[in-house]
């Protein structure tokens, strides 16, 4: 059994459209150079994405605090991560890098604050 998938190579501006056959072993087609093959393999085995979003913050200049996953989470978990952020509320002041949600959606990745926010009327 093998899965097929198309992704864009992101290693250079050309953006080759890679065709991935994912079975016992991964076959990459459509790349124009070795970088593409390498990238295709990685995308096939464990595509990861950093998730950016915001959570509600109380008492700061803006009502939202930008947050992101500290590192990539498995691609198929992205929407779950966002769901888990729903309703999360923090209170100013907030420090840059503060952990907002631990081990989000069981990915063992934390959600962290992208910036600090002071208290403001």
């Amino acid at each position: 059994m093998s899965d097929r998938k198309e992704v864009l190579c992101i290693r250079c501006p050309k953006g080759c459209r890679l065709k991935l056959k994912i079975g016992d072993k991964v076959v990459v087609e459509g790349q124009e150079c070795k970088l593409g093959e390498e990238y295709g393999r990685k995308e096939a085995s464990s595509p990861q994405r950093v998730v950016p979003s915001t959570v509600k913050i109380i008492g700061a200049r803006y009502p939202r605090l930008p947050v992101r996953s500290e590192k990539g989470v498995p691609m198929n978990k992205v929407e779950e991560v966002i769901d888990e952020l729903k309703g999360v509320e923090v209170i100013a002041p907030m420090k840059k890098g503060a952990v907002i949600v631990e081990n989000v959606a069981d990915t063992s990745v934390d959600i962290i604050a992208e910036r600090g926010m002071e208290v403001q009327e």
């Binding site: 950093v50 950016p52 979003s53 915001t54 930008p66 992101r68 840059k96 992208e114 910036r115 600090g116």
Partner: peptide, 22 residues
Amino acid sequence: CIHDGFGTILFDESLSGPEFAD
């Protein structure tokens, strides 16, 4: 610009906009 992808040339890191600005 709260997504990541900033700083890959200067810092060889993929930062978010606020982090890069900071």
